[in-house]
């Protein structure tokens, strides 16, 4: 096998919030190595297309699905379980990383997850001021506004104003806490259980939980 090249990207990526990264991300190959690998993959693809086992369009679609379709339901299941199981909720608030692993949601690559609980007098909202750190194993991919400068800078300076733009108006008696995500800490908001949801089972409760409520920019409406 030919020699591998490694450019030093440590400086370019070392801004605290991005780390810890999967070190595979920093691998780079030279053009010759890439050409050899491309040829091996093209040979496989051509043969499978010949046999009618794959189509180029289907392969493109497959990449799109995995790049974009990673829904927020994992977090919703965590929230619904916390609402219905006080012992689980206690474990979740104590050590969220371990508590979400109990439900089979792994995928954290070195980050710790912290769950912060909304109450009638405390409202939590999550941001990443420096980049776009996000609790993706439970929330999927971040919405575009989460990654953009206006939200990242303004939610710290004027959280009530930003929340109002999301339709969330909070009384003066409610304390607003803003949590700045980092390399080590990813936050998930445990929303208040909606009024009128008393009789619902865990699955039905999970269906009520939205991504925005788990970021903390909205509250869950009462169940009609």
């Amino acid at each position: 096998m030919s020699e591998h090249h490694e450019h030093d990207h440590a400086g370019a990526h070392a801004h605290g919030h991005g780390a810890p990264r999967n070190p595979y991300l920093d691998k780079r190959r030279n053009g010759e190595e890439t050409a050899v690998l491309e040829a091996r993959v093209k040979a496989i693809e051509a043969m499978l297309v010949d046999k009618g086992l794959v189509s180029t369009a289907a392969l493109d679609r497959m990449v799109e699905i995995y790049e974009h379709d990673l829904g927020p339901m994992n977090g919703a299941r965590v929230v619904a379980k916390a609402w219905t199981d006080p012992a689980y909720k206690a474990r979740l608030l104590e050590d969220a990383t371990a508590a979400i692993r109990e439900l089979g949601f792994g995928g954290l690559q070195g980050e710790h997850l912290v769950v912060v609980e909304n109450t009638p007098t405390v409202h939590n909202v999550v941001v990443c001021t420096l980049c776009s750190c996000y609790p993706w194993p439970v929330l999927g991919l971040p919405p575009s506004w989460y990654k953009e400068a206006p939200y990242r800078s303004r939610v710290v300076i004027d959280p009530r104003g930003v929340l109002a733009e999301f339709g969330t108006t909070l009384g003066d008696e409610v304390e607003v806490r803003v949590w700045d995500s980092s390399a080590e800490m990813r936050y998930l908001v445990l929303p208040e259980r909606p009024a009128g949801s008393e009789g619902l089972a865990e699955d039905a409760l999970a269906a009520l939980v939205t991504r925005d409520a788990m970021i903390g920019v909205t509250r869950l409406p009462a169940v009609a």
Partner: peptide, 12 residues
Amino acid sequence: RSSGELVFHDTW
């Protein structure tokens, strides 16, 4: 992944 998004260096 980088904040949840899959990372690919090359098309292959």
